[in-house]
Design a protein around this nucleic acid. Structure first.
Lengths: 109, 109
DNA sequence: TATTTGCGAAACCAATCGGTTTCTAATTTA
DNA sequence: TAAATTAGAAACCGATTGGTTTCGCAAATA
């Protein structure tokens, strides 16, 4: 199953997990206390976050500490930067102006 | 139906639409040419993007130009900034150190 | 050693998703 | 005015999602 960072952060619970784990590594049980669901449900979220490499596991006996992989978050950053580049440079392009003119021409006839 | 920006950008086709529309406003038909799906499928994506206010409609006769609402993209930006704040300040906190010590103590016995 | 604890896996379920085809309405255009 | 074009709505479909309960396994503890 192909896991995607964007699909991973689509779920609010997973976004909350990311924030919690960003502060400090946590076990599934500790995380589950913050939510109104079962540990198993949290475990499923952790699996998805781990599969797309947003989290890393750190086993200590029978406990598993989940910690954030900050680097992976940069993928979102990168996409946003890419967008901003286009968004900010679009004012230098004639495309929008032309589209507007075309539209106005049509509706003014 | 509650529409969420994060859920909206979870789909790769929708992310591509965002990029295309960031360059210049486009109609559903023009957008659909860039994808291997029907116009109706693209229309559904546009509906979702519009509902969460990432896109705005601009009708011109029977054509509807979809244009990007750059402000809404800032929501993602804001979330990322929030995360970075936590992520970068966590090194100043003792939590991680304490957790590590606790872990090491346990596994060394 | 027996019991408890922490965890993931599996099986199941209703709801949602992304896609299709078909249909309807409105605006161009011939 | 008739035909073509643009676009959303509706009905449908299989796959995926996020949740549950039940289970098994390994590690800690009594």
């Amino acid at each position: 199953m192909r896991r995607d960072v964007f699909q991973a952060i689509a779920d609010p619970t997973r976004r909350a997990i990311i924030m919690l784990v960003a502060v400090q590594s946590m076990t599934p049980n500790a995380l589950a206390e913050h939510f109104d669901t079962t540990r198993q449900a949290v475990s499923k979220h952790l699996r998805i976050l781990t599969e797309c490499e947003l989290l890393k596991q750190n086993q200590s006996g029978r406990e598993i500490y989940y910690q954030l992989n900050g680097d992976k978050m940069k993928e979102i950053d990168h996409w946003l930067a890419q967008f901003k580049k286009i968004w900010e440079s679009r004012f230098n392009q004639l495309d929008d102006v032309l589209a507007t003119l075309k539209k106005e021409k049509k509706s003014n006839i």
